[in-house]
Amino acid sequence: EESVKIVRLVKNKEPLGATIRRDEHSGAVVVARIMRGGAADRSGLVHVGDELREVNGIAVLHKRPDEISQILAQSQGSITLKIIPATQE
């Protein structure tokens, strides 16, 4: 059973501070990098390897990473992410 986590981040004009990529094996959209000091890093709630399912209620599974980045870039104020946390080894 996948544990889905709802994360709310507050982002002003600054970038979210995370990059995403598509996992070639599973097809999932995952967090590739977290930039120090960005909104994602400061929240402490988003981690490399987390699978991104939704951004502000928009399912991202069938979107290209550049489309998802665009949605994230255009979002201001509160951003709600639905993520499946990376499995902690």
Rank of each mutant, 00 (worst) to 15 (best):
R53H: 08
S26H: 05
D23T: 06
L52F: 05
V31A: 02
G37D: 08
Q88W: 08
L9E: 05
G44T: 03
V60G: 03
R36S: 12
T19C: 10
G27F: 01
A32K: 10
R8P: 04
G27T: 04
I83Y: 05
K13W: 08
D50K: 00
V46S: 00
R36A: 14
I20T: 05
K5R: 08
P85D: 04
H25A: 14
E67W: 06
R42Y: 04
R42L: 11
K13V: 07
E54H: 02
I58N: 09
V7A: 07
L9H: 05
V29K: 05
V55Q: 00
G44F: 00
D41E: 11
H25C: 11
R53E: 06
N12L: 12
L61S: 15
V10H: 11
T87V: 12
S69I: 09
L61V: 12
L72H: 02
L52E: 00
D50M: 01
S78H: 12
A39Y: 09
P65H: 08
I20L: 15
I6T: 15
K13N: 13
K82S: 09
L72Y: 04
R36G: 07
R36I: 06
I6W: 15
A32W: 08
R8E: 12
N56C: 05
R36K: 15
K13T: 10
R33P: 02
E67T: 06
S69L: 10
A40H: 01
I58H: 12
I79M: 11
I20R: 00
E24C: 09
Q70P: 04
K11F: 13
R8G: 03
G27Y: 01
D66S: 12
K82M: 04
L81T: 04
V10L: 12
H47V: 04
V29D: 03
T87M: 12
G77D: 14
E67F: 05
V4L: 08
Q88S: 12
A86N: 12
G49E: 02
R21D: 08
H25L: 12
R33W: 08
G38D: 02
M35T: 15
R22E: 07
L16Q: 01
I83R: 03
V48Q: 06
I68D: 02
I68F: 03
D66M: 09
K82T: 09
S75L: 12
A18H: 00
A39T: 10
P65G: 07
L45R: 09
E24R: 11
D23A: 06
L81M: 13
Q76Y: 10
L16C: 05
A40W: 04
A59L: 08
R33C: 07
I79F: 06
